[in-house]
Design a protein around this nucleic acid. Structure first.
Lengths: 370, 370
DNA sequence: GACAATAAGCTCTAGTACCGAGCAAAAGAA
DNA sequence: TTCTTTTGCTCGGTACTAGAGCTTATTGTC
């Protein structure tokens, strides 16, 4: 049951500062209904009106719809392999405050406790305006909000300790959330089916179909790194053979170069990819080819109209654009080759996951506000 | 904007004959609203009430909600590689009448014209109650409703000639629509993410996420046969190498057996798969292994909780269940292996595509009725 | 067979959201 | 100033809905 009020809030969230007249046209109501809606949402401390720059056109000037200065806020949190961070985000996506620190080798429960304390502090500072939380984590999240992050060695970490679970609470994989953010505030805005791929220690990603991120039956969708596009002779830590991830991440580069498996595969890979020497460049080219070929397979199967790359994918796209493009176009079905869906670096970069956590939490909260 | 009336119609469509009291509970309205809703929808000739079998329990007996005898109907059409057919389908999915004939080598425009004539005849016979059409085709459908079916040698066939385009009109790929039907009236009812795969001349399918079929940016989603799970040395007619489809369809069996590419790959494959001889059985086993491995990759990436197989997939599942299961489980990520999502034959069989056409057309029509 | 218990349907009263018509206000243009 | 254009505001009408209280149809018990 989508009410006009919720639709209006969604429009303002998608483009804060939209003029009131434009917003009314977008949701298809007349000026009468707009007056009633804006009045009601102002009373509820959800929206406020601000001045607009003079348009120069004729007619009565309209106002800009902005988040209410005492309106609800979302805490967006992100845990990465090296640090955690919390942002306080208002309607429209602006960040009002932030906090965070390095993991410093602490365990999952300790980190969640530190995060929770930071959220409580921020909540007091903002007069209890924070109404929900979104958390991005570098691993899988199961329904009961337990996190498994094999890279960090964390298992069954209780994310619900970060926030009273009864309120708006969303948690998701970093790649999934980065995809969400990219489709709403990045280069994938307007794409019908956006595919986001994120290479870090492994390869993950997500599909965004008409603005909705596909999370899968268990919340574990987007594990494209475990589709068998790779070398069938290579065994993946997951137990299967031929996983695509083993052909495109740091371990693949180390294998190609005859190195030991690196302790920090991300910075190792970044070093190799950006190295000017011929041997690393050849390994990078091989990995870029494997990446392009797999992207083509996913585009064929999922009919995406845009692909964005995050994490090391950005470095690969910068270092070996030709190899990626060649393998990508060769792998496309004939009818797609005339106009291959673009493969672009993600616009939001490292802020993708936390921005996605904010977006998903706001989406969840918006359905509850009215 | 989903109104209660539309919700009620959807409930009755999903389970015709539901009792009025149950339906009211399902959509969360009281008895007062139920009276008003059922009365209004009866006036509009959309719903009727019928007797219920005595429940044996105490209390005032309720009535069953059934489609109105003069209510709207949908024409569901299906074109296969050998014939076409039209069903007249009422709310709830019952088929009231049917028509069809063999293609007999005719071209696409002639077949669409014959189909259109049949629809007009059925429409007259049913007093103009037919309010929309859904068409299943063995090929890709583009936005402007042009069909390309390479198997039939048809290109740019104008499907809109079958029906005035302004009314409810949906067209889709047979595998996509079979997936839709399976998720609503087949074994995939209730699945969070259902993956349907259909092997005929090629390999196609679809993902159904929370009841919504993913159609892709161009309506060409589900071409899983062109994901590179196959032998990288084999060139696909699509131009790419290593397409999965080339490893699981009739052409794969012919290649493994040293036969010429068969003229009718479907009946050829069915003959090989069901042959008791050792050589065909070995080829069947190899194909089953390729199928299982690819299914695992898709389940890993898309996090499906159920996989259904249609077309030749049913034969393969019957002939080589062990090979499929072994390759499937070996290809799953470690954490999925404890409870692998079931791989089942599709319940609707050859009626899947036409049933899906009816479902999608009814879904589209239901949003317009009230 | 009367009466209780139970489940369901019906009626009536508000209440809310929404739409549209007509009017008022604020700007640029003549 | 006066006209034109665009937008905002007021007000009445309509559609949908929730809820309370009453009525009806059936089963079970004495």
């Amino acid at each position: 049951m989508t009410t006009r009020a919720t639709e209006l809030l969604r429009v303002v969230h998608a483009r804060p500062g939209v003029t009131r007249a434009d917003a009314a046209r977008m949701i298809g109501v007349g000026t009468g209904a707009a007056t009633e809606l804006v009045g009601r949402l102002g009373q509820a401390q959800l929206l406020a009106e601000g001045p607009t720059a003079p348009s120069g056109a004729r007619g009565r000037p309209t106002t800009a719809l902005i988040p209410h200065p005492r309106g609800p806020l979302i805490a967006a949190a992100s845990i990465t392999h090296e640090s955690w961070r919390v942002d306080v985000v208002e309607l429209g996506g602006s960040v009002l405050a932030t906090a965070g620190e390095d993991l410093a080798g602490r365990g999952g429960d300790e980190v969640v406790a530190a995060l929770s304390a930071a959220v409580q502090r921020l909540r007091r500072e903002h007069g209890d305006r924070i109404r929900g939380i979104g958390i991005s984590v570098p691993g899988t999240v199961s329904r009961d909000l337990m996190l498994d992050a094999s890279q960090l060695g964390w298992h069954d970490v209780d994310l619900a300790a970060a926030w009273p679970r009864a309120e708006t609470f969303v948690a998701g994989n970093d790649a999934t959330l980065a995809a969400s953010a990219e489709s709403r505030r990045g280069v994938a805005v307007g794409a019908a089916v956006a595919l986001h791929l994120r290479i870090e220690a492994g390869l993950g990603g997500a599909v965004v179909d008409g603005g909705r991120v596909l999370i899968g039956a268990l919340g574990a969708s987007g594990e494209f790194g475990h589709m068998p596009f790779g070398d069938p002779a290579v065994r993946c830590p997951c137990g299967a053979y031929g996983c695509w991830g083993t052909a495109v991440d740091g371990s693949a580069l180390a294998r190609l170069l005859g190195h030991e498996p690196p302790r920090d595969p991300v910075s190792y890979a970044r070093r190799i990819i950006n190295s000017p020497e011929p041997e690393p460049a050849a390994a990078t080219a091989a990995v870029a080819t494997a990446l392009g070929r797999g992207i083509a397979g996913l585009v064929n199967g999922l009919d995406a109209d845009l692909v964005t790359l995050g994490g090391l994918g950005v470095d690969l796209l910068a270092a070996a654009p030709g190899q990626i493009a060649t393998a990508y176009e060769a792998g496309l079905m004939a009818f797609r080759r005339a106009a291959p869906p673009p493969v672009l670096p993600a616009l939001l970069g490292d802020d993708g996951p936390i921005a996605g956590a904010a977006e998903e939490a706001w989406t969840a909260l918006l359905t509850r506000l009215i």
